[in-house]
Amino acid sequence: MSVFDLNAVLDEAVDRHPFRPAVSCDGFETDFERLDESVEWLREELVARGVQPRARIGVCITDGWEFVLAFHVLARLDAVMVPIDPFDDVSLRGAGELDLHHIIFHREQDAVLEEAVALISGEAFCPMFDVAEVFTLVVVSVDSPLHVEGGLFLNELGFRFRSSVEVGARTAALSVGLELGPESRVMVCGPWSCPCAVLLLLACATSGSCVQVIQEPRGYGGVLESVAVVVGGSGGAPQSLGRDAIY
């Protein structure tokens, strides 16, 4: 892509490396072609529920595979994505100032859903819909004006908007700096709302690299234990690892 198009970030990888692994998580692995099929199916589900391009969508998901899927779906939709930590009250209140249209939760986080929605929206109740039997779509304010362009709000000491051009520049620098390519496997661990995790997902997609998801580690010791299991069973070390979804 000569000009970075967030909504086309998977296209080149699917065209060039359809059968190479895209995501590996907890013993499950999917290639770029199957990931693309899942993305398109879920995209249609969200569109049917009223999600529009340039709508501001909170992604309130801690689970790795589900975050990867939802993130790529919203990128395909050219939405404005706002990754949010559902267990961080400061983050939730900060996201509430962005006039969100919708929020997406993973169904396994139903225990915190109502409290998180109240902190973001300031309302005791918002309409909610099941999506694909895995996600909950919360309608916050469909009447809010759409954003002027697609991109990301990244929580870097406060939510700051990053346009597709800015995201593209940072993603390209990350790909070059890490020497990512179709043979690369990159470990990513939580929190998934971390800007580094988000940009690393995009860098992997644009370079045809495989995201090796580390599920909900409890501290850095938990990360190391998970890494030992993954590396011991994979026959080769992933390309990168860091403390907070960092490389």
Rank of each mutant, 00 (worst) to 15 (best):
I120P: 04
V131E: 03
E156P: 00
A228K: 10
W192K: 12
W192A: 10
G151M: 07
F105W: 06
E149R: 12
L201I: 09
P191H: 12
D143H: 08
Q109T: 04
Q109H: 13
C126T: 13
V188G: 08
A124Y: 05
L119E: 15
A203Y: 06
V229I: 11
E108Y: 07
S175P: 00
V167F: 09
D110C: 01
F129S: 15
V134T: 08
P127Y: 10
G235K: 13
P182Q: 04
L202S: 05
S209C: 07
V138S: 04
A203C: 05
P145V: 09
F129G: 06
S184K: 00
L224M: 13
E183D: 03
G190D: 15
H147G: 14
V223P: 11
E115Y: 06
Q212E: 14
V231H: 15
V211T: 10
D130N: 07
E123F: 04
G233S: 14
S207G: 00
L178E: 02
G168Q: 07
C194G: 14
G122Q: 09
S144D: 09
A118E: 15
D130G: 04
G158P: 02
V188P: 07
H147W: 13
R218S: 12
E114A: 14
L174V: 05
P195R: 06
G158S: 02
A173Q: 06
F135A: 01
G236R: 11
G122F: 05
P195I: 04
V117N: 10
G219H: 02
V186T: 02
A172N: 04
V230H: 14
E179D: 11
E183C: 01
C196Q: 13
H106C: 10
F125Q: 06
V165Y: 06
I214C: 09
R162Y: 15
V188R: 06
S226M: 03
V117W: 08
C210V: 01
V176L: 03
G181S: 07
G219Q: 01
V188L: 13
E216G: 10
H106R: 09
H106Q: 11
T171L: 03
A172D: 05
E115D: 14
E216A: 12
E115I: 01
A172H: 02
V229L: 13
G151T: 08
V227I: 15
V231D: 11
E156M: 10
E114Q: 13
G168R: 09
C194T: 11
C126A: 11
Y220S: 15
E115N: 10
G219W: 03
I104L: 15
